[in-house]
């Protein structure tokens, strides 16, 4: 079946199976590499993308449900995006595998609460796992981006 959605502002039209996830088709057919499969069950956040502005696990969203939506990924952010800059300045990454998802989740948090408390940051990002354990600096990065 065909699904049409906007990907980082550009219209795309993809042929998908009804039981495929947005993550599968973004990676296979749309050239997206920043959203990554890690847990496959929506608990790790490595595949976080924005769907109509809301952070979503691309691995849990069946592709047909993205029809008509605005999908945004880390590819759509530039190096000068304030959250990206803040992550660079705070050295808030190690292996980098979770980082784009973390940044996407952080942009959504800051869009909703421009000056979040530490508790809010923790609550909003708790579902984005970083096994390298860069959390101290990720907290710092989000604080910086909010400032």
């Amino acid at each position: 079946m065909r699904v049409r959605f906007a990907l980082n502002g550009e219209p795309v039209e993809l042929d998908v199976r009804a039981d495929e996830t947005l993550l599968t088709v973004l990676r296979r057919d749309a050239g997206i590499l920043s959203a990554r499969e890690s847990c496959g069950i929506g608990v790790c956040g490595a595949c976080t993308v924005l769907v109509d502005g809301r952070p979503t696990s691309a691995c849990l969203l069946l592709a047909p449900l993205a029809d008509g939506a605005e999908v945004a990924t880390a590819e759509g952010l530039g190096p000068d995006h304030p959250v990206v800059r803040a992550f660079a300045e705070a050295h808030a990454f190690q292996c980098g595998f979770c980082t784009p998802g973390m940044i996407v989740a952080a942009t959504a948090l800051l869009a909703e609460s421009p000056s979040p408390s530490d508790a809010q940051i923790r609550h909003a990002l708790a579902g984005n796992l970083c096994r390298c354990g860069s959390y101290v600096k990720i907290l710092e990065a989000v604080r910086r981006a909010a400032a």
């Binding site: 009804a18 039981d19 996830t21 496959g40 069950i41 696990s57 691995c59 849990l60 069946l62 449900l65």
Partner: peptide, 21 residues
């Protein structure tokens, strides 16, 4: 919303003939 069903589909725990969204 499909979170539960997508997780089941990903793990091939269900193979429905038809999905009614």
């Amino acid at each position: 919303g499909g979170t539960f069903l997508a997780a089941l589909l990903n793990q091939r725990l269900i193979e429905p003939a038809c999905l009614l969204s």
